[in-house]
Amino acid sequence: MIRPDAPVLLEIRDLQARVEDQPILKGVSLTIRAGEIHAVMGRNGSGKSTLSKVLAGHPAYTVTGGTVRYVGDDLLSLEPELRARAGLFLGFQYPVEIPGVSNLEFLRVATNARRAGKGEEELDTFAFEDLVRERLQVVQMDPAFLERSVNEGFSGGEKKRNEILQMALLDPLVAVLDETDSGLDIDALRIVAGGVNHLAGPDNATLLITHYQRLLDVITPDYVHVMAVGRILRTGGKELALELEERGYDWVDAELAALERTPAEVG
């Protein structure tokens, strides 16, 4: 839902980042207001996953330039856990398994960390169990998954549902969902997308990172951004995604080549 007067939640300006010696992001700018759903599309290696990791604060990535304002704060100066407590959520493409740590306990500690960030009281184990059982329905997840170790032995689809369950518990202001559709069959995709749609509201925003149109068939974006070689090449409405679907990514290459030629010709 686009409302020009809605408050800005995330404002990325000319963001540049590298991993080891390899520059990946080469100047990304993006403004996200409350109530909006954005989709960033692009080929593998375009830098779209890096963007999500940099926003969440992954230590393997080094920011080399630009700024990110998050609800008025300098996001990049915050430790990853503080970003999460402030309501930034990253849904992982490949959620890791953490043997020995109970999923229920993990969800409770995470939920309470976020509640502390909102200035809310901690939930005790009973109150939390009530909450988690209610939120399980958002992703139609079997309560048995609460008793297992975090993601251990979960199928690809179960891991993604566990991610959306976390999103449902953590009540994020900005949810960045990295390739949430990858590895999902059509039923699981519908459930996961249903969860995302259910959680999207006028006060929060969603940034979908995806390779394929099929996710956008079930979650309608307000904006679609096409990313290539570390930059946002084009921004449009949902029809841009359909165009990509039709024409493939080849025209992006042509546009990119044109872009790279231009300065020389002009110069």
Partner: peptide
């Protein structure tokens, strides 16, 4: 590092994340 980052990205401080994993172990 990825396990620790995962827990951190859920609001759990680094040291608490280490100790959660150790007590799990």
């Amino acid at each position: 590092a990825d396990q620790l980052f995962y827990l951190q990205s859920r609001g759990i401080a680094f040291e608490e994340a280490v100790s959660m994993m150790v007590s799990g172990f």
